[in-house]
Design a binder for these strands. Sequence first.
DNA 1: TTGTATGCGTTATCAA
DNA 2: TTGATAACGCATACAA
Lengths: 359, 359
Amino acid sequence: MSSTLKDIANKTGVSVSTVSRVLHDDSKKYKISVETTARVKSAAKDLGYRVNALARGLRQQKTSEVGIIVPDISNPFFSEIVKNLAGELRKKGYNFIVYDSDEDPNIEISGVKSLLEKRVDGFIIASVGQDFAHIKKIRDAEIPIVMVDRCFADLDVDSVSVDNVKGSLLAVNYLIKEGHSRIAFIQGLPGTYANENRLKGYKIALQQADILIDEQLIVGDDFRTFNGYLKTKSLLSLSNPPTAIFTAGDLIALGALEACKENNIIIPNDLSLITFDDPVFASYLSPALSAVEQPTLKIAEMAVAMLYNRIKNPGDERRRILLEPKLNIRSSVEQITPLINISQFNDGKKVSGSLIKGT
Amino acid sequence: MSSTLKDIANKTGVSVSTVSRVLHDDSKKYKISVETTARVKSAAKDLGYRVNALARGLRQQKTSEVGIIVPDISNPFFSEIVKNLAGELRKKGYNFIVYDSDEDPNIEISGVKSLLEKRVDGFIIASVGQDFAHIKKIRDAEIPIVMVDRCFADLDVDSVSVDNVKGSLLAVNYLIKEGHSRIAFIQGLPGTYANENRLKGYKIALQQADILIDEQLIVGDDFRTFNGYLKTKSLLSLSNPPTAIFTAGDLIALGALEACKENNIIIPNDLSLITFDDPVFASYLSPALSAVEQPTLKIAEMAVAMLYNRIKNPGDERRRILLEPKLNIRSSVEQITPLINISQFNDGKKVSGSLIKGT
DNA sequence: TTGTATGCGTTATCAA
DNA sequence: TTGATAACGCATACAA
């Protein structure tokens, strides 16, 4: 249906190359007469010419496309990331293809395969799971790639993420400061970079306050709402339930909220809640949810800048960027009278005050 | 970097065509010896062969890709739509490319252009703005397309959306039933299909109840949070402010909530609020937000089914599907004592009770 | 100032 | 049972 350079050439009586040059606005460069230029341009318009990106990509061995893969585009955090990524890429003249891996490593792998077949010029991936063979393949094929939010400790690839350990420290130290010591952690997918570091921060905070880590209080297996719901239910039914819950992601927190509502648990009176990730609607929740905010715009900016740099300077050293999280205190955490083991905390010798500034 | 059929042919000593056949699992069909088949397959693996989708698409004149364009991927409604669309398309063996038009008609137009250049096999678009020349171009080029959520009254194209008029009737009739008569409507982008029909439903509901339409109470200009915030502020400062606000979208409602909070307006005591769109977090808001729910999964299913059918049977008659909205009553609307003009409503001769069943 | 010819990687047609 | 070859649409080196 759509016309080609050849069609225009036939119609105007010039050669295909001349048409190509004109349409690239290279008329001056090749000293093509104004008259031919005009004739070609008008013919192109008449015929509704549209360049064929497949042919062009094949010929030029590049597509000006980058492939983006995220675990869950309906998760507010990722949809914001994608949105910001989109804006940044547009500025640089790149198009992009988005894949939703649905938190499934296999879908992610097939997404990578498909994008590779499409010959994208680069990748931006928030990876799921523990396995990174497919990521390594991309890197080793010298195709520019940067990991966002989720990356791998053992794989040397450009990456941008928030300092997850610090984020957890911020949240848990705050809970401790408010008198909590039975603090549960509902985690996301175990083994993932983000989850392990958030867990690590949680544990460090407790240790620094000389609070014993109770494995019963570390639960959960993915970043979805239902996980939060289910695990909150079981935490609530413990003989010695927690006084506070820290969730590893916003969707998990939503699930926790739902479980509490069902059980007539009032937050923060009966239970305190704080979460990693700070979705737009956090302040309108009931109660307004205290949360650790990630700098999504900065993450996107950095990711695109790094990808761009990698495309232009493939030889540069790889970098891992860690961005600062921010604690937003609202009203889902209540100060409680410290229990026994908190007395140890109160001589305060192990708690780093600097981490909870801003409170 | 990546190897080609030719590389494999060279390595194995067979022709390119044979390689192609083997890799298509057409060995039996062409009676290619088991030995050659094995040699080719192993060589392909060794060389890390990966089909070049550009070359294939160019040759076959089809890509098995569909282009999706939505106004705002960070809007929960659209991210859900995209997610569901993705799942449905995957089932049918289609890949897809997502575009975020950022509620900007020009970005949408350039998105269409770019996807056309990529030679996608079909489009699914939630369009922004009033102009549909670019959509018409797609249709007239006989490229399958279905519009979702937002479409055009004057353009005959396959489409799926919720019954917007009915959705508004549901919401506003409910408000009226609760005794409200000064009901404001904060609209989205004027001139868009969704907005005009939501506005229409709002007006019909008022007229049916013999409530005078006060143009002062119809405000707003886009579907974003800030619009909701700003317009709520100005509605609140009216000498005769509304007792209830109906917002045309979830983001607008969020903005309204923020404005109320700032002005110390308690919902629903001081003001009732209800919105079109029912995001996942609606029930956790403070207060739980009453909302008109759209069947996002069904919208996605229908859209993909229609697109698929259009690809297979280009000649079929075009259809416009209208899906049923659902009113979810929570706690953001308060019953108030009817004002004067509501007495007219109380003889009830014009109100269709059937529309508010489910309450 | 413009044209010719070649190749990007596939698939499909025809031939052997 | 396999191979040679043309064509998809474009960009570019080389000619003229």
